[in-house]
Write a protein that binds this DNA or RNA. Structure first.
Lengths: 248, 248
DNA sequence: CGGCCGGTTGACAGAACTCAAGTGATGTGG
DNA sequence: CCACATCACTTGAGTTCTGTCAACCGGCCG
């Protein structure tokens, strides 16, 4: 159990402040949340669909993903989780998890008891509203993913996901000079986009050829942000950021 | 403005009670919500993406859909709204709408001021939790749609959406003897599933040939519920119903 | 009656999948 | 230290699902 005023709370507060305006008081209260920190290796399940957890997990560092499996064993990644995200915050009000969550890269994860979260929401309604808002933005992202997977093809579909990732990473200061670390494999992109891994590979090659992205290892560089946004038809409205400059 | 204790509140309460346990007191309080009722023709926008509404809309009867448009004018329906649904409840905490909502059939719609909803949530935290839960279930449905559009093909994808619709209709007593009224055109299914209208037509024909569905006009009959569920890989967990018999 | 809309059908095209093989980097064990 | 396995990525060839285009039917409504 880490003590209050620990830097572990920074990702949470930075993320919340990208979509909600907190008072000094509220910031301070958030740091009183009890949290058990764990260090996880890559490709490990954090929670599994069907679980009935009594706590939610806050990603402190690293990349994770929320996914579901079809009856025939195909995996759909429904969202990527980065620092500051609480990908199973919904379990606060939905007893049974309908998704699994797994790390992609090595992660530091903080577990926060539901009881503490519920208590905080009741005693500080604005904080309750902030968490509700978080889950509503998650829903908006899922809606956008439905559209992305349903209507866009090839390069456009991939470009859209990359745009979203970059903006969300920027909101928590993980992008510098149009460069970020993105330890997501082509297989994982395939599961997120509804493509085959082979197709992802070809799409990425085409994007590199067209100067939309540059990669070396896990580092991604966006040479021309406006062009990528246009190809991906990316309009960040659905992310409901309070600092709109993040998406510019 | 309709008066309290009016039958207009029945769809809302019936829907809430399918996913949340209400006390008599809470039921009564819900009926004090001010609501302006409107009658709309089919294929009319109720609200549009980009709007900043000061009220949410409750579907009292009829079918509506939540949709988004791509930059190239393609439409993705991200969910169908039926009696009891509040498809833009999220606008309570997200100022700008990122989706549009339109009627499919003629609808009766109740508009509830955000102020009244916010007030109720503050004064009755369990009701606040119930509404939060509603939005979380919406998010769970979006996640399932991402998987459906991303991983399932043809008959399976269509079967899944039909299963979901039937269960949700059953939850508000709109299914009798495996028969329901479904005034959704093939074009609308196409926009919901990410198919072309022609493909929807062929998929439906195949499903009729395989005895999965029977249709006459807008009436849909499910001759073999278990078979349809199996083909659509439908597991109703994600709907988080409190009365689980509804999905049986 | 004519127009319109939703549904249906056929022929063809194209996006994406599968299978299969091969590369290169990393890591492990003898 | 090298052989070997593993994993992510790459490439090619053939297949399949789904889209596009186009035409046509039948019911409904003005």
């Amino acid at each position: 159990m880490s003590s209050p005023f620990h830097p572990d709370y920074n990702p949470l507060i930075r993320k919340l402040e990208s979509v909600f305006i907190l008072t000094d008081d509220e910031r301070q209260v958030l740091e009183t949340l009890p949290m058990q920190v764990a260090v996880l290796k890559d490709r490990q399940d954090i929670v599994r669909g069907g679980d009935r957890p009594s706590r939610s997990c806050l990603i402190l560092s690293g990349f994770a993903c929320v996914y579901k499996m079809t009856a025939h064993g195909k995996r759909q990644i429904v969202s990527f989780a980065i620092a500051g995200d609480i990908p199973d915050l919904q379990s606060l009000h939905l007893k049974t998890l309908d998704t699994s969550i797994a790390t992609i890269s090595p992660c530091r994860v903080g577990f926060i008891p539901h009881e503490a979260l519920r208590d905080l929401c009741l005693r500080y309604p604005p904080i309750g509203a902030a968490f509700w808002r978080e889950t509503l933005i998650d829903a908006a992202i899922f809606r956008e993913w439905v559209m992305n997977v349903g209507q866009r093809e090839g390069v456009s579909r991939m470009a859209h996901v990359l745009c979203e990732l970059v903006v969300r990473l920027k909101a928590v200061d993980l992008v510098e000079d149009h460069v970020c670390d993105l330890p997501i494999t082509q297989i994982e992109f395939a599961d997120a986009l509804g493509f085959s891994p082979v197709h992802v590979n070809r799409v990425l090659q085409q994007m590199r050829a067209e100067g939309l992205i540059e990669t070396q290892g896990t580092r991604l560089r966006i040479p021309d942000w406006d062009k990528l946004k246009e190809v991906g038809e990316f309009d960040p409205t659905y992310l409901h950021l309070v600092r709109e400059d993040v998406a510019a």
